[in-house]
Structure formats: structure tokens, C-alpha cells
Design a binder for these strands. Sequence first.
DNA 1: TTAATTGCGCAACACCGTTGCAAAAATAAC
DNA 2: GTTATTTTTGCAACGGTGTTGCGCAATTAA
Lengths: 139, 139
Amino acid sequence: MNQAAKQNTLKSHKLRTTACREQVLEVLMNKNSALSHGDIEQELQSDFDRVTIYRTLKSFLEKGIIHKVLDDEGLRYALCKDNCSEEHHRHDHVHFKCTSCGETNCIQDVVVPPLALPAGYESHDVNLLIQGICPACHR
Amino acid sequence: MNQAAKQNTLKSHKLRTTACREQVLEVLMNKNSALSHGDIEQELQSDFDRVTIYRTLKSFLEKGIIHKVLDDEGLRYALCKDNCSEEHHRHDHVHFKCTSCGETNCIQDVVVPPLALPAGYESHDVNLLIQGICPACHR
DNA sequence: TTAATTGCGCAACACCGTTGCAAAAATAAC
DNA sequence: GTTATTTTTGCAACGGTGTTGCGCAATTAA
């Protein structure tokens, strides 16, 4: 993805264009699996401070550029494919973690089915993680 | 739950009876929400070393006495209601985290519906977390 | 009762994620 | 284009999480 597109993404989410944000965005766009803070830090080869990357991720989260992906060994982040914003945030897709290669991916095609909760429960957000073997590792 | 029952649980999972294990088991039985390591440590008021509690949880996990509950702010543990063992481990229920009171609970009644994954994906384990408001906080 | 096994506490360590603050950079105003 | 304002950055520091190694203590088996 080119420079203009990244700047556009940032601007449309009301974030100033900075080197760190551009590069974090680039990393997330290139890898299409969900990445942890550590993954990103490693990818950027200490061009930026740890703290800056944390804050970058935090602002991306708040603005709806990325979303959290839960995993039994920590938190990861993936780009929002849907057109999310600060106000509207919608993620009903499934996350898949391959226990062989360790990658965690969003499966956009598979939608979390509606669930009937017992009376009194109010659902705001659903997060579904499936662990198993991905096609690439499946030989 | 009485002493004998706890010892029985430990023995049937091939774990030696120790004070720490009994008390961790007791805490998990009394609270019926999922607890983090920190919660348990606090509950036991430094009767035991942090490390011992970590190792206790680890052995409980391995033997199938408890299971992990994912959460966007960390890992929690809850007793397995099903009759889990080292070999057989089955959890297809839903976890609910209330964003108001912060408690995370297993909803045994709601079962995760079967999902059709794209070709090549092999599912081993499913983990579904719903965040929202629980009945108690729902006014 | 003794020997073998397993669990415990302590010290140490590597990560993770956050905060406060002063300097630097990005935008807005002129 | 220069200056003023606002936002972002890097640094230092901190608290929390989860792990490992090791010698000693407790538990079980002989």
C-alpha cells in the first residue's frame, strides 16, 4: 500500500500523520495475520520506542482502525476490514489460531451466529476464537 | 464443599493432596466466576508463594480440573463442570464478561453452535467470549 | 523407617502495559 | 513562511504477569 493511502487512512480517522503510525499501519497491512505488540516491535527493528508503539496501537484501537484479537497466549491486533470508526465498530467474524504455525487470522467469511442468551444478559461484543490447524499447515 | 470432596477431586486427577491445592480448589469452588491468578492470590492472603499458585493452576489445567477463560484484559480460570480429564477435555459453552461489574462467568446452558469453516481448516477447540451487561448489573 | 518422588519457597529474570515529563514534531493561525 | 498551539515522541521508571533453577520440605512408595 502506498504512502497516500496510509495518510488517507490516518486522516480519515482524525489522526496526525507521523512516521511511527505510517510504519505500524504498513506492517499491519503487509502481514495479514493478527500481530502482537512484540511482533510489530520486532518488525520495525527498534526504529521507535516500545511506548510509542503501544500508544500508536491504542489510538488505532480507539479510532477503529484495528481491533483486538484474543488468543490464549495474549492480545493481538488486526486491521478492521469493515469500515469502522470511533462511533461504529462491528466485528462478528471468527478468529482462527493455528496451533502448528502459531498464526492467528481473521476469517471474514464465517460469521458468528446469533446466540440466544438467558434472560437479563445484554450482549455488546462477541469474540470467537477457534484453535486448530490451518490449511497451510494441514499438508 | 468439604475436605473429603476436595481430596477426592485431587486424587481422581492423580494429584497429591497439599494445602495449597486444597485451598486454591476451595476458592475456585466458592466463587463461581472465573478468577485470575491475582484474584486467587489475594483470596489466599499470601498463605502461599505466587509461584506455587502458578504451578498449582498449571497442574490443574493439565489434569483437566480447570479451564482457561479468555478475556480482553487477561487470562482467568474456572472449574470444569463437565467431567474433564487429561485425555478428554470438552468445553463448548459460552463465557460472558460483564463490563460493569467485571465478572466473567461460564454460561453452561448456551452451547456454541457448530460452525462451517472454509475447506482446509481443522477445528480443535472453540472459545467464545461475549461482553456486555449481566443480569445482576442490568438494574 | 527409609528411599524415591513430588511440591514448595526463594531469588532472579524476561515481558507486558502504563504513566509522567520534557523535548520534538505536526498542524493551525497569522 | 513564520510563529503559536496542540499533539506525539522518547526516556525513565514502575507494577504486574508468568517462567525457571535450585535447595529444602513434604508426600508417597518400598
